[in-house]
Design a binder for these strands. Sequence first.
DNA 1: GCCGTTTTCGGCCCGACTGTTTTCAGTCG
Length: 568
Amino acid sequence: MKNQEIAEIFYEIADILEIQGVDWKPNAYRKAAQNIESLSEDIVDVYKKGKLEDIPGVGENISRKIEEIIKTGKLKYLRKLKKQVPIELEKMMSIPAIGPRTAKLLFDKLKVKSIKDLKKAAKLHKIRKLKGMGEKTEREILEGIKTLEGSKGRFLLGHVLPATREIEEEIGRLPEVKQISLAGSVRRMKETVHDVDVLVSTDKPKKVIKFFVGMDDVKRVLAKGSTKASVKLSGGLQVDIRVVENDYFGSALQYFTGSKEHNIELRKIAIRKGFKLSEYGLFKGRKVIAGKKEVYVYKKLGLPFIEPELREDKGEIEAAASYKLPKLVKEKDVKGDLHVHTKWSDGSDRIEEVARAAKERGYKYLGISDHVSRVRIVHPLDKRRLLKQMKEIEKVNKKKLGITLLKGAEVDIDKNGKLILSNDVLKKLDFVIASIHSGFKSDVREITNRIVKAMENPFVNVIAHPTGRLMQKRKPYSVDFDKVFEAAKDNNVALEINSFPDRLDLNYVNARAAKEKGVKLIIGTDSHSKEHLGFMELGVGVARRGWCGKKDVLNCLDYGKLKKWLNK
DNA sequence: GCCGTTTTCGGCCCGACTGTTTTCAGTCG
């Protein structure tokens, strides 16, 4: 039974209780679920140690329920609740305009239990007859179902970032705009985002909002008020703008960056100190004591500045209060990229082109790592072509481009944990990345064994994308990270944070666990063209969300030290 | 249901916008 599965159960309980109109309990269950979800340790281990109640938000009652789930795989309480409220809650509530109260109303009056029922009811115009509902709500619900069916609910950070920056620039060019910043989950570098938040300060809110809803890419205006507006872009992405006065841009930025959970904790601190915190500032009575800048808000609450990527209420507030926040790695700390494909396998650019682009980015070194694989589609290298490629790399190095190329390869791990290239070839390389590209469906033991065995090969330096996930396409394979972390340390092997937009693997939870265990990380882009080198920002985002500093990331080392590490 | 440098009982974040209403509940973030 995994942490995630147990968390899901408590989320479900929270939803049902909310529908039933129960006060406070939903929050308590949700809080517990969040903390279980983000636990880096296996909850079964925590249970065995008798430490369940050490998890924040878990008390006597919930810990008893966790025990029941671990022992029996089920929870009677949830079953009972489900019988009382037999509704597809999670899906229903993902439809805009439907929250717990409306779901309850729809069930009570129209026996709507599922999206299917909902669609039918809306099409038959039954919903508009309910109290508090109308034509417009009905249309919005149908629209929402369409969106859900097209699964356009969440977007990959790497895919929305470019468009988002364009919008930021476009609005920023307005002379009326004093300050502008992205906020929300984009600013926190969350791997997927539901919408994009833009914060602007100006004396002319109407003008800015008018411009915003009239931008070229806007397909639909969802809401438009005097201080905020929401639009849907043609690609389906929702963008929200919030317009404030310059005097409280800081507190507004703090507020709109979130996360919600982080902000709730901050407000509690404010209350304890006799203050009140909102987007309009930090107040002592009626007096504003902080608002202009984000950092002042934290300061007046007795805290140092907390980087946006950490603001998830995962211990950052406690760490800040005791001045134990980590100094996070920055993109400019990265000295090179070690996961790059070229035309030799399935990349689209030649070695020299990629090298020049890497040099442009300020890198000191670049590791070429084309595929050695049995997957035909990637046009893999065999021994002969690999040796030939190494010659070409040497040739490019002689051109003195101001960047050093390292000879590497991304070699498949076979189903027994062996690399599909013999050691006498591997040892000629500067570095070896090992990765799993087949047999994803094997069980956790098998996968873990394959990875561990690969790490025991003396020439392996990095395990690429350790869980193999492709967001929105393929689930991660199960890996026993305790074992993998141990083996990584024992064998001086680094784990990769793969920066490709749909991978981001390790994810930030695992990256943080790795860091805490003292495992070294490498941030690689898995570039298949020179433009992909820019994905580094996403991997750095993951590392930052995982509390990693530059000392945790090997490709922040300069060339000499990195080379030494690679030679083990 | 959880939690505690105000508390083991009594709190539990805060505000904007919308639709459907004539003053507000529900949703959203």
